[in-house]
């Protein structure tokens, strides 16, 4: 029979998992780009990859301490944002989308190529970089929490750090968006020529926004690799599309939307794929001849359909302003 209690428990784990936090932070970065500034960045996966590899390579190849590795990652993402932004931020929005998606893919191919295997680990990726972060853990060994949220000291440490970062990032973004800086950026989203005519250096603001959201993505990339290994295949375009789904689920021009979007996304995804897998094993889908491999693939089909339905029927997301909806084109 299908064990619903187990499905709910597994879904509950996702509620506070570091992966959920990482996606929330990456989506918040994208909210700054897309929701607030109107920059169609399709390369958020690239920023995350820079965080992951920046941290991994600095730790493994150069033996940097944790703070050094984090700074390298952030520095690299600023350089990446500059390289993306300089040629494209003066162009029409669709050019940025194509260049960012291309740049993210270039990064992935560079991280995957055999030529650089000694540093990047090629298709196998990297592991064994977590020591420094674990050493910083002040929490004594033991078992903490209850129910689905039972965890060891490292997992607890990781969750505390991950969600603290998410909260700080939210506060930062919230303060920025209610300041005159946020006003300029939102103005650029509406019509950059108008803002230019008011004497604002639009190019420069777009660059700042690209860097800020990119750095959020990069830090998200670092949180993302702490519970797992670095595998280049994780940073394909699909990652960016998942983050868009999360962003639109919560509301593109909101601060809490990306966080709540990420939680809903992961809890639902876990519940749905858990259900499909177990139901398939229990023979519920034998009529349509679904195999266990196929059961695993349904989640992607569902994400795609949800993304479409969201944009069509609730473009402002769960947290978006109803009043705005009347005017959303």
């Amino acid at each position: 029979m299908v064990d619903f209690w187990q499905i709910i428990q597994n879904a509950g784990v996702e509620l506070i998992s570091p992966t959920t936090a990482a996606y929330a932070l990456a989506a918040l970065g994208l909210a700054i780009h897309f929701g607030f500034t109107g920059l169609v960045n399709f390369g958020q996966a690239g920023f995350m990859a820079i965080g992951a590899y920046g941290y991994g390579i600095s730790t493994l190849t150069f033996h940097f301490p944790v703070w050094g590795a984090v700074l390298v990652g952030i520095g690299a993402s600023i350089v990446f944002a500059l390289i993306l932004g300089v040629p494209t931020l003066r162009l029409r929005a669709d050019y940025l989308s194509i260049v960012t998606i291309a740049a993210a893919e270039i990064l992935r191919l560079i991280f995957t190529t055999n030529t650089l295997e000694a540093v990047t680990g090629s298709a196998d990726g990297l592991s064994g970089y977590k020591g420094g972060f674990a050493d910083l853990n002040p929490i004594p060994d033991g078992t903490y929490g209850f129910g689905p949220w039972t965890m060891n000291a490292y997992d607890l440490w990781l969750r505390i750090v991950a969600w603290t970062i998410v909260i700080i990032a939210c506060l930062l973004a919230w303060q920025l968006m209610r300041s005159p800086w946020g006003r300029v950026v939102k103005g650029i989203r509406e019509d950059e020529d108008a803002v230019r005519a008011l004497g604002k250096n639009v190019y420069f603001y777009k660059m700042q926004s690209l860097i800020l959201g990119g750095v959020f993505g990069t830090i998200a990339g670092m949180i993302f690799i702490l519970p797992r290994a670095i595998v280049p295949a994780n940073y394909a375009t699909t990652l960016t599309f998942f983050i868009y789904t999360i962003l639109l689920l919560g509301g593109a021009a909101t601060i809490l939307g990306p966080v709540v979007g990420s939680i809903i996304f992961w809890v639902l995804l876990s519940a749905v794929s858990g259900f499909v897998a177990r139901a398939q094993a229990a023979g519920w889908f034998d009529l349509i001849g679904m195999s266990s491999v196929q059961a695993g693939q349904t989640r992607f089909i569902l994400v795609g359909i949800v993304l479409m339905l969201l944009v069509i029927f609730r473009p402002q997301g769960i947290f978006g302003n109803k009043k705005e909806l009347a005017f959303v084109k």
């Binding site: 103005g187 509406e190 108008a194 005519a197 008011l198 705005e324």
Partner: peptide, 18 residues
């Protein structure tokens, strides 16, 4: 501009402050 460029999803006041 000849084709008006109001910043639609900003309030009138925010338009002005900008």
């Amino acid at each position: 501009f000849q084709l008006t460029k109001a910043l639609s999803l900003l309030t009138v006041l925010d338009n002005m402050k900008l």
